[in-house]
Design a protein around this nucleic acid. Structure first.
Lengths: 245, 245
DNA sequence: CGCCATGTTCACATTTTTTTCAGATTTGCC
DNA sequence: GGCAAATCTGAAAAAAATGTGAACATGGCG
């Protein structure tokens, strides 16, 4: 076992804090609690948890604001320490999820209430694992071959020429680019990009992939970037001869 | 496809049980019913369903108590089997109290009565999918001799040169490589790789093995990796002089 | 209110994979 | 060596998955 991870739980409901504490401690995490936004910020002055679980609906300074402050890329931002602290947002309704996307806040994951503690623990593990490996997906631009994507401006270039993507197209491409070479089933992409509440058809993914190809690929029927894996799904394949990074 | 999922429906109202049974069976689930709390607990002594749909308002031992007993993280809890069984609670009202209570107890989802059967089925699917993906995850690459296989990218190399496999070819090879030196009859491979509902001919396996050999082996008629065991089936044989890792 | 941009669904064309099957060939055994 | 059973081979039929075009929702906005 490596050293114990510290998790900051920020929620105004005492019950929720206690439930999360119990479950997280069962998994071997150290838990710090904060009840309000200001309290959380104060704690963050002196501590640096490995992950923050943050309710978006806090009295006073809400979760969005805190996230923004943590992610603010300013020089003299004392909270913006090198290497962002992963954040999992707790949201009440799924339409707030859209707001999150629009606000580009850079949370690492979100869980909609009501949620099961086990699910949250699973997300915590995933996020920590993700940020533990080299996949520190702060908000850095990603690139592959002639394709460049900048999450902050939500812009995409192919060979220097800007390409206009819709929100979902962007989200899908961004997700795929963050997991190059890994194959995803359509359902997995629905879960990851559309969210768990999406009950629609898998063909939605197919169509989005097609549109991405039309916009990105030199030859959409012989794609360089988004590869079809027959009988499985898609992957962001690095075309053999092109290297990035 | 994988094997049929078993769902335990616990509700004192016969009508509800029957409706749920009908809808769930239409989706291919096996359904077990329980009318009371004690009956549910008794069933759980001998069976292990993949998911439980649980009314919180049961006469006698109510849904909350059952959830609590299933989730109790105690050493000598006979019902607390490794890997929790997902629970979907049926609650009458969506008030705060129930929400918190359910949350605290570790249910995976909630449906408030009255609900549409279709919605419940959708929730069941989502929860099952979610808990399934939470389990797998650890898909490390496997290798043997010059052969390397990476489940995440579904890619295979022989001596560094990539080999293109179809979905079934990949699944078959992956299965064999995870069980090296073990001999499987064709029917066993059908069961394991194709799934239990496959009613086809065993020659299907033969053909797939042939194609794998054509793609993998230096000399397909004198295979190094997939060995024929006459009168029985095949095994992923480690060729005598080659060692892995 | 109607228009436009997204997102979703659907029916059908196309492509790829999977399965089947009838010999040819190999193996184990007497 | 000869025989029966099992396996391999090649090709074609059958099935499945994906690509395509267009219609159908939905929601924001002038």
């Amino acid at each position: 076992m490596s050293k114990q991870r510290n998790i900051l739980v920020v929620d105004d409901e005492r019950t929720i804090r206690e439930v999360l504490r119990r479950y997280l401690e069962l998994e071997g995490y150290l838990v710090t609690e904060a009840e309000t936004g200001p309290q959380a910020l104060s704690i963050l002055q002196s501590q640096r948890p490995d992950l923050i679980v943050l309710d978006v609906m806090l009295p006073g300074v809400d979760g969005f604001s805190i996230t923004r402050r943590l992610r603010q890329p300013s020089e003299n931002n004392p909270l913006r320490i090198e290497g962002d602290i992963p954040i999992i947002l707790l949201t009440a309704r799924s339409n707030e999820v859209d707001r999150i996307a629009g606000l580009e806040l850079g949370a690492d994951d979100y869980v909609t209430k009501p949620f099961s503690p086990r699910e949250l623990v699973a997300r915590v593990k995933t996020v920590l694992r993700r940020s533990a490996t080299a996949e520190v997906e702060s908000e850095a631009p990603v690139a592959c071959g002639k394709l460049r994507l900048d999450p902050r401006s939500r812009s995409v270039d192919v060979a220097g020429a800007p390409v206009t993507l819709t929100a979902k197209e962007f989200d899908l491409l961004y997700f795929l680019m963050r997991h190059p070479r890994q194959v995803f089933k359509r359902q997995q992409l629905l879960d990851q990009v559309w969210g768990y509440e999406f009950y629609g058809d898998e063909s939605t993914v197919t169509v989005h992939v097609r549109r991405l190809r039309e916009k990105l690929e030199a030859n959409p029927s012989k794609p360089d970037y988004i590869q079809t894996v027959w009988g499985v799904g898609y992957k962001f394949g690095v075309p053999a001869n092109q290297e990035t990074e």
